[in-house]
């Protein structure tokens, strides 16, 4: 590092610290209140509250409750944006096919790196499954678990080779199939109670989790003393599948060699 760099970094730090000091003194407008706001108090009160059975979620994790129940539709549309982006990347790579090269022994990094990665290939999916399936009890959820699981895909592409996943049966089309199953699961979970209500002839809402005053149906929230959080478990599980395989598609497409992609996309 040069002397000039040190000087610039020091001056940036001094600038930021003085800006923080001015902000803390209230020089850049009024400071936000430090006590808990009313909407937050309501969320915290209603996340798991057996005394208000028509308003609660019956899940222990308030963030997941907000994401998939209180503000469920917001999350659905965010999910839709993410999947539209993946569809766009698939459309960009249309006509490009992944090649299968049988011998993967000589490709990839050293045997040390491969052995370490083989251990993580089991450990990381275990962590991601626990994050997904416990998302309604402890911090975590579908998107978190899906992105953790994708690290395995990236590792196996970089450490072994880009032929490793297709040879072991995870092609782009299969990932697309699993992603669609995840999306379908989210869609069915969001209207499941509505469909049952139409059959039974009672009232229900889209994205309904627990029973409301005028809508008596609800997802199971407690099975054998185990808190399920109603629809949150299903949403987390399907979002996990959809996100993990959505990212997998992107990385499989990115790993195709540039010459091949250029040949297909430039020649039309």
């Amino acid at each position: 590092m040069k002397k000039a760099d040190v000087f610039v970094i020091a001056s940036i730090i001094v600038f930021i610290l003085s800006l923080a000091y001015i902000t803390a003194l209230g020089g850049l407008g009024p400071l936000p209140p430090i006590n808990v706001r009313r909407i937050a108090i309501n969320y915290l009160n209603l996340t798991y509250n057996t005394f208000t059975p028509y308003l609660t979620v019956f899940a222990l994790e308030s963030v997941t409750s907000i994401v998939w129940d209180f503000r469920g539709l917001d999350t659905l549309y965010e999910t839709a944006v993410f999947y539209a982006a993946i569809i766009a990347s698939i459309a960009l790579y249309r006509g490009v096919y992944m090649d299968f090269k049988k011998n993967t022994e000589k490709t990839g990094l050293s045997p040390i790196a491969k052995t370490v990665t083989r251990i993580s290939l089991i450990l990381i999916p275990t962590v991601s499954a626990s994050v997904a399936l416990h998302g309604h009890l402890t911090p975590g959820g579908g998107f978190q678990a899906g992105s953790i699981a994708t690290v395995v895909i990236v590792l196996s592409i970089i450490i072994f080779s880009r032929y490793f996943l297709p040879i072991h049966g995870l092609s782009k089309n299969k990932a697309l199939l699993f992603r669609s199953i995840g999306l379908l699961g989210i869609a069915i979970t969001s209207i499941a109670l509505l469909l049952i209500a139409i059959v039974l002839g009672v009232n229900a809402y889209i994205f309904q989790n627990q029973a409301k005053i005028d809508a008596p149906l609800s997802f199971p929230s407690l099975v054998d003393n185990y808190i399920l959080g109603g629809s949150l478990l299903f949403f987390n599980l399907f979002e996990f599948i959809a996100v993990a395989f959505g990212f997998t598609i992107v990385f499989l497409l990115l790993s195709i060699s540039e010459e091949k992609v250029k040949k297909v996309t430039m020649d039309g």
Binding site: V131, G141, Q144, I148, T150, V154, F251, E258
Partner: peptide
């Protein structure tokens, strides 16, 4: 904010550098 940490570590330390490395390779 442990929920954010769980998504921030794999995305920002794992996936985004991986995407950038793929792009730099091209």
């Amino acid at each position: 904010a442990p929920d954010i940490v769980l998504v921030y570590i794999p995305v920002s330390v794992g996936l985004i550098p991986a995407v950038l490395l793929f792009v730099i390779k091209k």
